[in-house]
Design a protein around this nucleic acid. Structure first.
Lengths: 203, 203
DNA sequence: GACTTTGATGTCAGTTACTGTCAAGATGAC
DNA sequence: GTCATCTTGACAGTAACTGACATCAAAGTC
């Protein structure tokens, strides 16, 4: 009984789709790491999984998304973590706390995360797409913060709180990748948040 | 004597190049506004100016850059303005002050700026590229701030100060475009900066 | 169990962004 | 005038995408 995979709501077809999707992004990251992003064609990725390139584009809007997707759940998860924070917690603190478990999650596979982060930050077209995703996360996070604090639609605080938190995260992430995956991602995140406070304190 | 164009260091050839460049971006913005970004081909832009599409790509690395380029000097100008701020001024205040004259500059052509901003924020590939440029500005601004404050390379404060200022700018810009070019861009910028302060004050 | 419907896929053709290469014309130095 | 440099156009080629259509398998429906 315990063996039967929890069927939840995911149909057979849906799980099949997810499988193809996972294999595609897995193969893509592999190939990107070996040959670089620009040097790898969509045909190669599709061939590695045994599907046509047309199918690839049915799963990912653009080539870049296969990478962003890989860290893709990060956005959703972050929104979920934020929503789960206690209501009384001040916004920026809530953001800071929401980040911790996700970072821990990613650091379970440090080498993979590192390779991925490097690709994400070094290839211009990928980086651009990544930033665009981050902007979407920012807006979703801001929406959650707005409902938490009851801020009106013309209040800038939610967006800026989300922006600051993501900026701190980005800074820590870049530093972490720069130091070849230094052990203390979380410590750097704290440093970054403190730097944000200092930046505003000394106006 | 006063009639003679200040020849400075720009050679004839260089000015000719600048002319082509300007005409290309002018024509591009025109066409984008009429038909949309994706619907306009590089061939059309080039044809409108009377050059080959090959030449277009000698001036702009990618199609998106012709738009970003248009607001492109913004980054350099911002760095210059920041560098010109008095040394004693606190970093975030310096950033805030550096923004004012640039906004004023852009608001000299409100309808043009508005059309451009809309294109910049609404087309995904353009927006992505724009964010990437912003990230580059952020790093340059951070470098200037670091030398101003004497911060070391492992100090997060410069990057975060720049990030926060640009985030405030972006928020104000988005709101401004959303309100069809409301009159008070500068007022909104102040609001956004205050929101950043508030976001950090209530931790 | 036959029938229908739905969804995923492959194939193919076509568009467009972008790049390398080479030859031709303009420009400026001498 | 002549050589060198710079800019451009023409052409060919690659690769990212997209739309249209046929096919095949799984999932109901009766």
């Amino acid at each position: 009984m315990a063996e039967v995979p929890a069927k939840q709501c995911t149909s057979m077809a849906e799980r099949k789709r997810q499988l193809v999707r996972d294999e595609l992004s897995e193969a893509a990251v592999q190939l990107f790491a070996e040959q670089g992003f620009e040097e790898t064609t969509v045909d190669q990725i599709a061939a590695a999984v045994g599907v046509s390139s047309r199918t690839f584009f049915r799963y990912f809007k653009v080539k870049e998304d296969v990478l962003v997707e890989f860290l893709g759940h990060f956005g959703e998860q972050l929104v979920a973590e934020l929503a789960a924070r206690p209501a009384g917690e001040p916004p920026l603190t809530a953001m800071r706390q929401a980040l911790t478990p996700l970072i821990g999650l990613h650091l379970e596979h440090p080498e993979k995360t590192l390779r991925l982060t490097r690709l994400l930050l070094s290839t211009p077209t990928v980086r651009a797409r990544y930033l665009d995703h981050q902007a979407r996360w920012r807006d979703e996070l801001a929406a959650v913060l707005a409902t938490r604090t009851g801020a009106g639609p013309d209040d800038f605080r939610p967006v800026l709180t989300a922006s600051i938190a993501l900026a701190a995260f980005a800074a820590a992430q870049a530093r972490w990748a720069d130091l070849d995956g230094a052990p203390s991602f979380v410590a750097m995140l704290d440093e970054a948040f403190n730097a944000a406070r200092a930046a505003v304190q000394n106006p």
